[in-house]
Structures are given as structure tokens and as C-alpha cells.
Design a protein around this nucleic acid. Structure first.
Length: 316
DNA sequence: CATTCGTGAAGACGAAT
DNA sequence: ATTCGATTTCACGAATG
């Protein structure tokens, strides 16, 4: 752990990384691979948002990537269950010369076979688990989810493994589904779109795996409340906290009037934020809100009008 | 020109059958 | 498994500033 007090050694092993500049002080940002964070070199501000977007998927190990530090573990893609890595013991009770085995040896071979089988499947599970946990951690960081959510996701995933729910589904969709469920349980939900954006699978795959897990593990996840999105949306749009509170008020009114039933919580949150910003004369367009919230412009309009109409002022 | 607002067709989803 | 109803999105154009 030598803190480099001699700055003569320039780091040049991450040339292709373009972390950008710090929003606070404008200093250069350094990507911390180990914690999947992006940190400012000057003021130390950690901007996890930057980790959300794009960039090459570093988890794809292709040959051209001659990175010195790669993850320990099997190459991820295309790996069959235990290709070539495990031993099987023939079922024929013969020795190497083809002679029949004595009864005692036969018994012994039988024991070896069963144990070998146990270890083999166990190893395969371990590997899958390691990879899945890595994925959960990665996606969790990219989404800026706190540590305990990732732990919850890991626990859910472990249960899924124990219940033998994995066969037939892609590892990544399961991991994403675990994370999605954990985020909701932790009251810091991310929308399905946001989760799929950092995963490599289609939105519907995640949704399907999520429902599957919910049913098979009988997880209890309460319906999302729009308020849980408001804070994040407001801060992503650089809005004052007064506007955020106003948005919550609007949602409250909406619930009282029952306009919220059947509507997507994300849509309502987006609309509330926009409506509140509008009332406060903030410089926010529908397009801004739509982009940040992954809700279409059209829906934002539809909902925010309803919110204002139901609110205790603004007579149309 | 940018932003907002409205529309109709089309897809997705949940509930009911 | 299919149908139905509401929601959401997309693409487009009109109105407004």
C-alpha cells in the first residue's frame, strides 16, 4: 500500500479509459476498477453516475484485451457446465486391464463415483455462483445501488441456486432479476429499463426471470411507490429540494383522488417532478424529464395534467 | 427554432374467462 | 391459451413562444 508520493511514474495502463471530468471541480476523474467507482483526483468526489453509462463491457474477455489484471475465474461466455474440467468415473466395473473387480473394490468404486459426482456438480454450482455474484456487484455499482442492496441480491440468488431454479435460464437474467428485486425491497428501486441497460440481456428476459423468482421463492415485494423515485429524479435534474417536496405533495393528492391506480409508478413520479418544476418556473423541459426517467414525453404530459387538475389549486 | 400539446396506431401487461 | 381493457410508446403534425 505505498501511496505514490513520487508522482514521476505516470499511470499509462488505462489509456482507453475516458472517465471525463469532475462535475464539481473540473479535475480529472479516475476509474476505480476494484470498486467500480469513478472518483475525482482533486476533490475526491465519487461520481457513480458516470459508471452507469456505456463504455465497453469490460467483462467480455476477448483475446485482444491483453489486460494484465483480469478477473480470476473461468472465462464467462460460452462456457459449458464443466467442459473438460472435471473427471468422470466409468460405470463399468473393470480395471484398466479389463478385468472384473473384486466385490470390495466394486464397492469402493461405487463410493468414489457418488462422491465424484457430488463434487462435480458442486464445483459447477460454485463457479456459476461466483460469476453471478460478480455480475450482481458490477450491475449494482453501475446503478449506484448501496452495498446492502447488492448483499440482498446475493442472498436471493443463493436461494435461487439452492432451489435449483437456474437451469434453463440465462445466468445474467437471473442476476439482473435478483438485483431488481433487491433494489425494490431496499426502497431504492431502479426501473426495469435501468436494470436492463446495464445488463446484457433483453428487458423481457429480466422481467420473466423476475416473475419466476418471485413465484418460486415466494418473495414478497411490495408494489413500487412513486415517491421512491422522486428524490433520484429530482437530483438528476438538478432541482431544488423545494420542488422535490412539491412533487411529493402532488403525488399525495393524486393518491387521495385515486388517479394513481393502474398507472406506472415511474410515470407518476416523472410527471410529478415535471409538474412541480413547472409550478416553480424551473428550467426543465418535458424532454429532459423523459430522458432522465425513461418515460416517454407523451406520458409525462398526460400524467402531469391529471396531477395538476387533481391538485388543490390551478383551476383549468 | 424550441417546446408543448394532441392524435391514432401498435405493443405490452394484467385480469378475467 | 385467448380476450379484453387500460396504459404506454412511437411517429407525426399543429400551436405557441
Amino acid at each position: 500500500m505505498s501511496t505514490s508520493d513520487h508522482p514521476n511514474q505516470t499511470e499509462h495502463r488505462t489509456q482507453n479509459d475516458e472517465p471525463g471530468t469532475c462535475p464539481e471541480c473540473g479535475g480529472a476523474l479516475t476509474a476505480d476498477r476494484k470498486h467500480a467507482e469513478t472518483q475525482c483526483a482533486d476533490c475526491g468526489l465519487v461520481v457513480e453516475e458516470a459508471a452507469i453509462d456505456r463504455g465497453p463491457e469490460w467483462r467480455n474477455f476477448d483475446e485482444s484485451q491483453h489486460s494484465g489484471r483480469s478477473r480470476v475465474g473461468p472465462p464467462t461466455t460460452k462456457t459449458r457446465h464443466d467442459d473438460g474440467l472435471s473427471t468422470t468415473i466409468d460405470w463399468r466395473n473393470r480395471d484398466a486391464n479389463g478385468n472384473a473387480l473384486s466385490p470390495s473394490k466394486r464397492q469402493r468404486m461405487h463410493r468414489l463415483r457418488t462422491w465424484n459426482e457430488r463434487f462435480r456438480t458442486r464445483d459447477a454450482r460454485e463457479r456459476g455462483l461466483k460469476q453471478a455474484l460478480g455480475e450482481i456487484d458490477r450491475m449494482g455499482s453501475a446503478l449506484g445501488l448501496p452495498e446492502h442492496v447488492r448483499e440482498t441480491a446475493s442472498i436471493i440468488h443463493r436461494r435461487a441456486v439452492e432451489e435449483n431454479l437456474l437451469p434453463g435460464r440465462s445466468l445474467e437474467s437471473i442476476s439482473a432479476a435478483c438485483l431488481y428485486a433487491a433494489a425494490r425491497q431496499g426502497d431504492v428501486p431502479r426501473s426495469l429499463e435501468e436494470v436492463t441497460a446495464v445488463s446484457r440481456v433483453a428487458r423481457n428476459d429480466v422481467a420473466r426471470s423476475y416473475r419466476y423468482l418471485l413465484r418460486e421463492l415466494s418473495l414478497e415485494v411490495e408494489p413500487n411507490r412513486p415517491e421512491e423515485y422522486v428524490g433520484r429524479f429530482a437530483s438528476q435534474l438538478d432541482l431544488e429540494s423545494a420542488i422535490e417536496y412539491r412533487a411529493r405533495d402532488l403525488l399525495e393528492g393524486a393518491r387521495a383522488d385515486g388517479i394513481d391506480v393502474g398507472k406506472s409508478p415511474v410515470s407518476l413520479a416523472a410527471a410529478a417532478v415535471y409538474a412541480a418544476a413547472l409550478l416553480a418556473e424551473a428550467d426543465v423541459t418535458q424532454d429532459d424529464v423523459a430522458t432522465v426517467t425513461d418515460v416517454s414525453e407523451v406520458t409525462v404530459r398526460k400524467r402531469y395534467r391529471e396531477l395538476l387538475r387533481a391538485d388543490d389549486d390551478c383551476p383549468l
